[in-house]
Amino acid sequence: MSRAETDPLSEKGPGSEAAPAPRAAPGAEAAVASAVRRPSPLWTFGLLRSELVTTVRRWRTLALLGVLAVVPVLVGIAVKIETRGGGSADHGGQGPAFISQITNNGLFLVFTALAATLPFFLPMAVGVVAGDAIAGEAGAGTLRYLLVAPAGRTRLLLTKYATVTAFCLLATLVVAVSALIVGALLFPLGDLTTISGTRISFAEGLGRALLIALVVALSLVGVAALGLFVSTLTNSGIAAMATTVGLLTTVQILDQIPQLHALQPYFFSHYWLSFADLMRDPVYWDDLQKNLGLQALYAAVFGTAAWARFTAKDISA
């Protein structure tokens, strides 16, 4: 699916190679007319909006979000069926975090669903979107047209990264909202017991759920930067996606090998499940801080590496 076909803002069809202005955003026509002039700051937002709309409207993106939305439904129904007779879900502590508390309070389905999707589903979706960001454009032959518009390479890269980050948040919220709806339909809601044994009100629990969703989304920005960097290395979108998802899986496996414990604190996935610490009372911040610091580091390192690569790259397609 090429950019020109899906872009609702494109003025010309895919065949018209001679008209290199397919992505003019509203309010930016003047800038397009004189390409040498520096674009107005508003142009950035036009570009970002155009990117967001293009990304979200893709069938591939919608399918990914659909899969993510189904996970909480499956978990919720499975727990409901298992505890039908009024018994509690006793897994002897097996399964994703919080799963044994779902029957008391539907809100715990949000945490369980995020704990179940964070190790693989969520980063895979982000890897697909991030890997496709630059390489997909290059592969479809639309990258050069994007650069014709006076966006500039740095600005285009930033916009792409902002779009991927927005997708991280969107994907997390899809899981959380779907889990909240399923949890409310299948299980009782009300005051909840934190994992430290204290009780908090439902409103506070909801606040913590939102905070957890935000932390989970931020946990993915490291993968997003890594995916974007990989995406600048190749002209094949599929290769970039496969590499990103492959790296993700490799790191997750390495994180399980005890002999590598000295390296593990530097793996981007190492502190992912620390979001559960937000359900302690008082909140245990140590690992959360480490996680966010690590994600910022990955974003900085691979973001600048992507910038170094992309701004010096020959655009041949």
Binding site: I195, G197, L273, R280
Partner: peptide
Amino acid sequence: SGSEYSLIHDGANVWGYDSKTN
């Protein structure tokens, strides 16, 4: 990881709570 075991002594009551198995 993702759970907590608490031993709470409050007056005459002693509670042990394992959040992993609830």
